[in-house]
Design a binder for these strands. Structure first.
Length: 271
DNA sequence: ACCGCTGTTCTCCG
DNA sequence: TCGGAGAACAGCGG
């Protein structure tokens, strides 16, 4: 259920898994995962992983001239398994020269894989429309203001609009707003420069935190019983705010649940 | 049994 | 053209 940090970790993990290895063959199960394009280019993939890029929540892998776009959707993830071990909800498989298999596992099928010529990866719809990526392109407060400062959208909705800014999802948009002390329902165009600066910093902090949280040998997003919610505001409705103890509230915004602290994130503009 | 969900895209409407 | 709401995709867990 990935946002930028999880996708970036997936990218790094894939690079590690492919290091010094060759892709021997691919296998695809016929599902919605391959909803665009044709099967032929996917079947052709082989050899060393020559490039692994990420833009927003999209992964773009290259095996020489042949490329692969992968989007994890809500429940997609890559896992590496020993030969012969089957993986529930495996939608695509990458067999390495060691015999190990990297599975694209995706129960809900919101994710997508598309193979095409490497040079066409950047032209794919979805990829092409992406806005600035805070890690790949950098994001200072001027750039942030340029990206979302003109829209009438609610601030949180604007932050999640992948065509304006690529990579933030429901969690990290909420986290960044909490760190910046901004109400998610503020209009994006109403921010003061002080607030833009705070928000730009907060975005970087949230993403950094996400990256540090997720770093590990295996990409693992599964919530385990007893493991505490690592986020400052996301998923904390009804519990005391970590900063001020005020009861955290939530409401629906752009079809998604937004969590915020009414005291720390007042609607009042800070000049 | 019903609801919600770390996402995207589409449609319908004003 | 923009923005808002709702649906669709599909499985699982509370």
């Amino acid at each position: 259920m990935p946002e930028l940090p999880e996708v970036e970790i997936a990218r790094r993990t894939l690079v590690r898994w492919f290091e010094g290895r060759e892709l021997v063959r691919t296998e695809a199960t016929k599902t919605r995962t391959f909803r665009s394009g044709t099967a032929a280019p996917f079947a052709k993939l082989k050899g060393p992983l020559t490039k692994a890029d990420r833009r927003g929540k999209y992964l773009m892998l290259q095996f020489g001239d042949e490329g692969l776009m992968a989007h994890l959707g809500m429940t997609g993830k890559f896992v590496k398994r020993s030969p012969g071990v089957d993986e529930p909800y495996s939608r695509a498989r990458f067999v390495l020269d060691t015999g190990e298999v990297i599975h694209f596992r995706d129960p809900r099928l919101f994710g997508e894989i598309l193979a095409t010529k490497s040079e066409l990866l950047g032209e794919l719809p979805g990829v092409k429309k992406l806005g600035r990526d805070p890690l790949v392109d950098g994001l200072d407060w001027h750039q942030l203001k340029d990206a979302i400062g003109k829209t009438k959208l609610d601030l949180k909705v604007a932050l999640m609009d992948q065509t304006r800014l690529a990579g933030l999802g429901n969690i990290h948009a909420a986290e960044a707003l909490f760190r910046a002390g901004l109400h998610p329902g503020r209009k994006a165009k109403s921010l003061s420069d002080t607030e833009w600066k705070a928000l730009a910093r907060a975005i970087h902090k949230s993403l950094e935190f996400g990256l540090s949280e997720q770093d590990g040998e295996e990409i693992e997003y599964v919530e385990e019983p007893g493991v505490e919610n690592p986020f400052l505001i996301y998923g904390r409705a009804g519990t005391p705010c970590r900063k001020c103890k005020t009861k955290v509230k939530s409401y629906t915004q752009g079809g998604r649940t937004t969590h915020f602290c009414p005291k720390c994130q007042s609607k009042k503009r800070k000049p």
